[in-house]
Structures are given as C-alpha cells and as structure tokens.
C-alpha cells in the first residue's frame, strides 16, 4: 500500500502486481496478528475495565464496536476513492485492484455499524430504526458501496470494470458530503433533535481508550483483509503471466 513512496529508488516499484504480491503476502499476517492483539485488548477494556454508563447502563458498551465500524466505513470509502483517483491519474493496474479489494470490507463495516446501531437504539430510543441524519446517511453509504460492487462485478472486461468503478467511486466521494449535509438538514426540518447522538456525555478515559484501540484494531483488520484479497485478485488478473505460473508451481497449487 503506502510502501511504494517510502522506497526512494523507484516510486512505483511496488505498483507492479508481481512485486506487490510477495510484499502483500509478507505484510498481511503481521497486520492480522496486530488486529487480533488490539481487538483482544480493546474488548477486555470494553467489557471488564470500562465503568457502567450512568444514564444508559450496560447497553452503551456496543459503542466499542459500533463507533469504530462507523468510522472505518466512511474512511474506507475515501481510501477507495483515493486509489481510484491514483488509478485514473497514473494508469496503474494495482490501484484499481486495491479499490476493489477494499469495497467489501467497507460495506461490511457499514452494515455492522447499522446493525449494532439498531441493537443499541431498541433499548435506548425504543425503536430499531429512526430516520436520524446519521443513520440515514450511513444507509445511503451502504447503497453506494453496493452500487460500486455491483457495477465492478457486472462488467466482464476487467479493465473496463476497473475504470468504470473508479469513475463511480470518485463521483460518490464528491457526493458523500452533499448527501450527509442534505440529510442532516432534511432531518432537522422534520423533527427536533430528540434522538441526537451528539449529546454524548463526557466520556471516562477508559471508554475513550477502549474505543480508540478498537478503532486501531479495525484499521489493522482492514489492511490485512485488503492485502489478502488483493493477492487473490492479482493472481486471477495475471493468471496468463509466467510469474503467476511459477508462483502457483512453487505453492504446489497446480497438479
């Protein structure tokens, strides 16, 4: 991922799929281990150390999963748009693969954020779903992810799929803030801020730490999964090349 700029000798050294493939293979287990470690630490803080919330009781503990998932779902879309832009500007094959590899993880986090939000909303607001600005824009973000995945999967020619997906991701990224603010305004026109999420009471330090550590775990998980997924995408895309044949022979993956 970001390794390509840290090597001074050649900016695009790792932009070639055949050099990035082994690098991704070496990095992914480290990030996976880091994710497991941070998640264990974060969940321990969340369930055993953090105090019970004075107003919401035990149910507030869902934020240790909910908030990092919501952050991640928005951030992954931006990263996707970034790689899409890189792919269009520099015409690098790997950039579009990176965007494709990130999309399912982003959609997953988006869904997790909505699902845990519903579970939290039932005891707190008395309803699984309210048309709150944040919930609604999160739902629309999920639709944007589905649209991206559906479009890239529907196009059979891989290069056309990459480029069409890149254009869609960039159009979506321009629209995400517009959607967010319009939904926010629409909501305030219809009902008062009776269910605002922003009125969070000042948090205990352990709560904040637990949430931050869980957010870092989500980052590490996303990187690890994206690297593994991009490795499969590279093998699939480059299956006609010699280095993939050599690699498959080396792994004993072919009879």
């Amino acid at each position: 991922m970001t390794m390509q700029s840290s090597r001074g000798f050649h900016l695009f050294h790792f932009a070639a799929p055949n050099t990035f493939y082994p690098l991704a293979g070496r990095l992914a287990p480290w990030f996976a281990g880091l994710a497991a470690l941070l998640a264990a630490l974060g969940l321990w803080l969340a369930f055993f150390v953090a105090p019970t919330d004075a107003t919401q009781g035990e149910v507030y503990r869902v934020i240790f999963i909910h908030v990092p998932a919501a952050w991640m779902s928005m951030f992954v879309y931006l990263v996707m748009a970034f790689w899409s832009g890189m792919g269009i500007i520099f015409n690098t094959r790997l950039s579009a693969l990176m965007a494709r590899a990130l999309a399912p993880t982003g959609a997953m986090f988006c869904f997790v954020a909505l699902w845990t939000g519903a579970l939290w909303g039932r005891p707190t607001w008395g309803a699984y779903w309210v048309w709150d600005a944040r919930l609604t824009s999160q739902l629309l973000l999920l639709f944007l992810y589905f649209g991206y995945i559906a479009l890239t999967e529907a196009i059979e020619d891989p290069r056309r799929g990459d480029r069409a997906g890149a254009i869609l991701a960039l159009v979506g990224a321009v629209n995400v803030p517009i959607i967010y603010f319009s939904v926010k305004w629409w909501n305030t026109l219809h009902q008062g801020a009776s269910v605002s999420l922003t009125k969070a009471p000042s948090m205990a330090a352990t709560m904040l730490w637990g949430m931050l550590i869980m957010a870092l775990a989500a980052w590490a998980y996303t990187i690890a999964v994206a690297l593994w997924r991009v490795r499969s995408l590279i093998l699939e895309r480059e299956r006609h090349t010699d280095w993939v044949s050599a690699e498959l022979d080396r792994q004993g993956a072919r009879p």
């Binding site: 629309l140 639709f143 944007l144 589905f146 649209g147 559906a150 479009l151 529907a154 196009i155 069409a164 254009i167 869609l168 159009v171 979506g172 629209n175 517009i178 959607i179 319009s182 939904v183 305004w185 629409w186």
Partner: peptide
C-alpha cells in the same frame, strides 16, 4: 457507466438513486 451491460436497468437504479437523494430532499 452501465452502457451495454446485462441487467443495466436495475444496476442503474442502484447507482444513481442514492445520488438523487439530496435533489429529492
């Protein structure tokens, strides 16, 4: 974007309807 794709109509709805929301609002 969906030109010439199989099932382009449904796909088109999925792509553009979320983007239409601010206009509707």
């Amino acid at each position: 974007l969906t030109l010439g794709l199989r099932g382009g109509g449904m796909l088109l709805a999925l792509l553009v309807l979320p983007l239409f929301v601010p206009v509707l609002i």
